[in-house]
Design a binder for these strands. Structure first.
Lengths: 136, 136
DNA sequence: TTGTTTCCTATTTATGTAATAGGATTATCG
DNA sequence: CGATAATCCTATTACATAAATAGGAAACAA
């Protein structure tokens, strides 16, 4: 019942890319440095996100990443499923007493994760940082 | 986002103990054999549950376990928290964009886990096994 | 051609789970 | 008392996965 760093890094990367929007490319090096993450490790994660079609990449100078779809359409459920893999329940499903409970748990989790997007995270962050979209 | 075997074994053990009720003691050996779990491993788990006050033990011949409180009052939240430990969120909490999301996730999970009890699991199992409390 | 970026693959290191092992303690019963 | 049967305690091993490191290949711009 925890999120691996791999997944958290992926989310951090997506948030960084989304924040830049179309104003420019986001590079691994830049994000890794700012967040104190290993460049080589974050590279691998960028690669996975790209293969899965969540982001689009360009190589070479001025290269980097863009989001493939709008931040509002990128759910955490999608990201987490990609990074953590399918919830392996091979053993738990063989336990009769637990199968209904487990199904319910998965549904509860999914509905929460699929209703939160990268866009939401950026909004949350703004609130915490005391930056608002409007002024009085 | 998975349950360790340790936790599943603990739940299996609690269910077995609850099923016996006051009709007799439940032993590790008996449950381990029936469920195909290592006796020595299940012993360790029984010990943890006992220390935490979820079950009560007697040693020696005719020894074994009883529930410490009613199966309806034994929530899975309690059991899972005990076996899996506190959800370690040391890193995730330092990520501003994720803190609100994480809080919400924990609340969602807790409310589901705390609303399911060992008693519920036994009822679920009965349903699956085609055994009902009443007949038409 | 040089430099900068993503991409690919292999290897190491660290960590925690699952299981094994051996014995100590407690209690029953003949 | 002595044999037996159960929980309890602690240490160690085996295994899997996560996290990180490493070296270079491919793509691209100036």
């Amino acid at each position: 019942m925890k999120l691996s760093r791999r997944t958290i890094y992926a989310i951090i990367l997506l948030v960084a890319i989304a924040k830049n929007g179309d104003s420019g490319n986001t590079t691994i090096k830049e994000v890794a440095k700012k967040e104190g993450i290993s460049v080589k490790y974050l590279e691998q994660i960028g690669c996975v996100l790209c293969k899965a079609g969540l982001i689009k990449s360009w190589r070479g100078p001025n290269g980097g990443y863009h989001l493939e779809k709008a931040a509002k359409d990128c759910t955490l459920g999608e990201v987490i499923k990609l990074m953590e893999g399918e919830v392996s329940s091979d053993y738990i499903e063989s336990v009769n007493a637990l199968s209904l409970f487990w199904d319910g748990l998965c549904k509860t989790l999914d509905s929460y994760l699929n209703s939160t997007t990268i866009y939401d995270l950026i909004e949350n962050e703004k609130t915490l940082d005391g930056v608002y979209d409007y002024c009085i």
